[in-house]
């Protein structure tokens, strides 16, 4: 290893954490310690896990320590020839001097295609592009409905006062919950009646983003949420502000992305 440091412990922890894997499966690999510069032979069969933009390999499915990590940023994924002709190979290439491509092979054409697809779309940049596109689509859709909904929500929101400080950030991150129906009407009701839970959201989930109250208005991710804020009306905003001050004045509480 050497000069370029990485918070390996956290990375390894993340590899084994319960966060969803985007793709998993056995692949043949020709890299690794002591591997010849030119791939030869049948390589080695390892268990691969794609999480976000990180591709981990493990000795076996049950293994608790990742063997290797590839960060899938600034790379291309393409079909390739394996040393063993019946393999369904592909390569991850980095456009950097002295970096050999990672040659991998799936058991069949379907798995090969699925891996190439998943890996080539794994970058943060791709994800962000899709998010920005959807964000603007939602803004457009909201725009046409905003006025008619405004009046009815305000009526609901006006008499709905939380009796006790709710531990969740009101409303907003609920939208990220797997709840099938989280229309703003429901969010208002939920906020008033349901107990708050604890969970992972504080750890770099969207909730922590919304709890971060000093967002730049120019931040593209926040524009829609600020609109939603306004829909709740000034009164709710004020209540929330007071609540946040209380919560953050004492101790940070974990937020939960509640299930339905």
């Amino acid at each position: 290893m050497g000069a370029m440091k990485l918070n390996e412990r956290s990375v390894a922890h993340y590899a084994l954490s319960d966060s969803p894997a985007d793709h998993t499966g056995f692949l043949r690999t020709w890299g690794g310690p002591g591997a010849p510069p030119t791939p030869s032979g049948t390589g080695r069969r390892c268990w691969f896990v794609l999480k976000g933009n990180l591709l981990f390999s493990f000795e076996s499915r049950e293994s608790r320590a990742p063997l290797s990590l590839v960060v899938l940023e600034g790379c291309t994924v393409e079909l390739a020839e394996a040393p063993v002709s019946e393999e369904f190979a592909f390569a991850i290439r980095f456009d950097a001097p002295g970096v050999r491509p990672h040659l991998l092979a799936a058991d069949g054409p379907a798995a090969q295609e699925a891996w190439v697809k998943a890996l080539s779309r794994a970058s943060f940049g791709y994800m962000r592009l899709v998010v920005r596109e959807l964000e603007s689509q939602l803004r457009d859709a909201r725009h046409s409905l905003a006025l008619q909904r405004h009046s009815s929500w305000k009526a609901t929101g006006g008499h709905c006062k939380p009796q006790a400080p709710d531990r969740r950030s009101p409303g907003l991150e609920n939208g990220h919950s797997p709840s099938k129906d989280c229309s703003p009407m429901d969010l208002v009701e939920e906020r008033c009646s349901r107990p708050a839970g604890r969970g992972l959201a504080e750890w770099q989930g969207p909730a922590s983003h919304f709890l971060g109250r000093r967002q730049s208005p120019s931040c593209p991710e926040t524009s829609y949420f600020s609109t939603l804020h306004n829909w709740y009306g000034e009164e709710i905003m004020e209540l929330r502000q007071r609540w946040l001050q209380r919560v953050w004045g004492s101790q940070p509480e974990r937020e939960k992305q509640d299930g339905p």
Binding site: S19, K51, G52, N53, F124, M127, R128, V130, V131, L134, E135, Q137, L138, A141, R142, L145, G175, H176, D181, C182, S183, Q204, G205, P206, S208, H209, G212, R214, Q215, S216, C219, E221, Q257
Partner: peptide, 28 residues
Amino acid sequence: EWMGALRRASYEFMRRSLIFYRNEIQKM
């Protein structure tokens, strides 16, 4: 500025945002 950028910098954050937008658009 840094704290804000760092909180938005994770892949999991992007994923959750994407699912949120997808869900909202689908409902509308």
